[in-house]
Write a protein that binds this DNA or RNA. Structure first.
Lengths: 338, 338
DNA sequence: GATTGTATGGTAACCGGTTACATTTTGCGT
DNA sequence: ACGCAAAATGTAACCGGTTACCATACAATC
């Protein structure tokens, strides 16, 4: 069934030349005579010869492959990052291997193994390794984190989460809100800590605060936004916050649904703000006010960084901050005192 | 800078045994004595030896890699498929290479090349090749399409689009709608043709019809749903359809936004129905009625199919139909005659 | 003690390219 | 026609594993 592939030796034999000539005709055309070049090209076409890249990779000890570690591929923010990574990688002749880790340490280890066994040349980690169980790989492995947080043992390409969360706080304060709730990301996620810190510190600067009972723990999913939204709404009106800061847009959309279903209006009765700047947030009812993270650009820069490192020329900067932007749409408005 | 890796020969030399013994200790432990086994294991740990899988792959002429061709990675339906594929592949020890083709034939060709040059063992195409420009690869290459259409020269795992579109038509007819519009997918997409056919044929069965002026051409994006929604709304009320069938959920969400902004109510004034059954459709205002495609399962089955084929044992069925389901939520209701 | 079987381990070929080095051919000047 | 440098080509080693085949050691059998 499986016919054997045409090899360089077949081509050489067919032409009565050495394999070196064939190899050179293909990879260094000016090292062979015009006549040989033409004969080889003709033979390659006739025989349908395709060089086996597996053997090339083996020879060069290079797989030309990048791994992208993704906590959850169904998260739209990551899709943007991937797109950025993919386009840079493709241009550089690199392939992108998908690593859906589903937050599992075994799966992470699995992918790190691929680099150690030379099946891949480097890793881009989306978001940050969960410090609780993450296998922090040797720093000899080209590894960069994109869209994550500071304080990692490896380079990062990211926005300033603290600053972004502070921007959110200031925006809500400017709208005269005083009672807040947040729906956070995963408990051990660095992004969660930084956004929480940026938000709370800024509240304190304005003599406001966020009580622990107003901190709801989510997991970045639509469903967790919805559930936490229900919990917030369930409180008697006098105890409800007037603004909710959700640590990503998906949870914000979930929370909005809960609020709408309760018959309340956004932003008249309650303001909701998201994080990430997903395009789909614009189609939410109401369109989500949020922080725009330039996902595509984050991905591109991460890819460029890792490619340079793989080329043996690790950049001398370790923490690239990309500008975020407060995207004011319709889900936040001035707080109305009753 | 780059220290060389420990090879099997280093381990052998270190122990004063042959490389064959080391190799066997690792891959066929019962072929060596207990003593040798222990010594090798110890040395492997001490020296930090990791077998070079690049050379293994080369030896076995197997890359253990699957390519997933994705027209657009930011489309949520594809994310589900990928997740299904990834989990099956991972279990089988296969890696998943991401091929974001962005509907470009050069990029498609690029990925097909990877199989021809043995860097990958098979391809899963999400949706269908665009017949206009697609490079239909040789049937010798393990290739399967998931979530696409019938009438392809390669195997498919899919739902019955015609039947699903018919279900939609019947549902809308049962709700007493008589004036319809559709927002289709890409013009050359097979899915578009089939859904259109299924819908129109069923209308005809009920002595209804869809005039060409009510067929709006979209591209599966949120934005194109919105724009076409605006166009539909722009017509004078007497000429407007009472129900819009969008060929995916994203466009349906876009259309809903346009309709909401025009001050109309869904489903009271106009019904909207989507396609794909994305989770996020539940968070739309109003929650989208749609056709559920079991994305995860489609992906899993596609992966199993291609893995079997790669193993040299191509399944003898060529067209797997997976059950779809009409998901009734809130965006369609009985037509009210004014 | 000779014969046979089994367990163990070594030697070397092999996968399909690339390329350093050696060798042959070509082209050019005189 | 000869000499010599440059161009073209060939030979063979190499990348790092796997494994067919062979050699040796030792135990069991008669």
């Amino acid at each position: 069934m499986k016919e054997k592939n045409v090899t360089i030796r077949d081509v050489a034999k067919h032409l009565g030349v050495s394999i070196a000539t064939v190899s050179r005709a293909i990879s260094q055309p000016d090292r062979v005579s015009k006549k040989s070049l033409e004969r080889v090209q003709k033979a390659v076409n006739e025989l349908g010869y395709r060089p086996n890249l597996l053997s090339q990779n083996f020879r060069y000890k290079r797989s030309n492959t990048l791994i992208v570690l993704i906590p959850n591929i169904e998260n739209l923010f990551f899709s943007q990052l991937i797109r950025g990574i993919e386009s840079v990688a493709q241009q550089a002749g690199f392939n992108v291997l998908l690593g859906d880790t589903q937050d599992s340490p075994e799966r992470e280890l699995n992918y790190i193994n691929l680099v150690e066994t030379q099946q891949a040349d480097g890793i881009i980690q989306l978001a940050t390794f969960n410090p609780e169980f993450s296998i922090i790989p040797s720093t000899k492995i080209p590894l960069v984190s994109a869209g994550g947080s500071a304080n990692t043992p490896y380079p990062t390409i990211r926005i300033d989460n603290i600053h972004a969360a502070a921007d959110i706080a200031r925006h809500l304060i400017a709208l005269e809100h005083t009672e807040f709730a947040v729906i956070t990301g995963l408990k051990n996620d660095q992004n969660t800590h930084e956004r929480l810190k940026g938000f709370c510190d800024t509240l304190l600067d304005h003599s406001l605060s966020l009580p622990d009972t107003r901190i709801y723990s989510g997991d970045y999913s639509l469903a967790s936004g919805y559930e936490n939204g229900l919990r917030i709404i369930a409180k008697p009106e006098s105890q409800r916050p007037s603004a909710i800061f959700c640590f990503n847009d998906e949870m914000a959309m979930g929370a909005c649904k809960a609020i709408r279903e309760a018959g309340l209006n956004i932003p008249e009765d309650i303001s909701v703000i998201g994080f990430d700047g997903l395009q789909i947030g614009e189609y939410n009812e109401p369109a989500l006010t949020t922080i725009m993270q330039p996902g595509r650009s984050l991905g591109e820069q991460a890819a460029r960084y890792i490619l340079q490192w793989i080329d043996g020329d690790k950049p001398d900067y370790n923490d690239v901050i990309v500008e975020h932007q407060l995207l004011i749409r319709q889900s936040c408005d001035k707080h109305k005192v009753k």
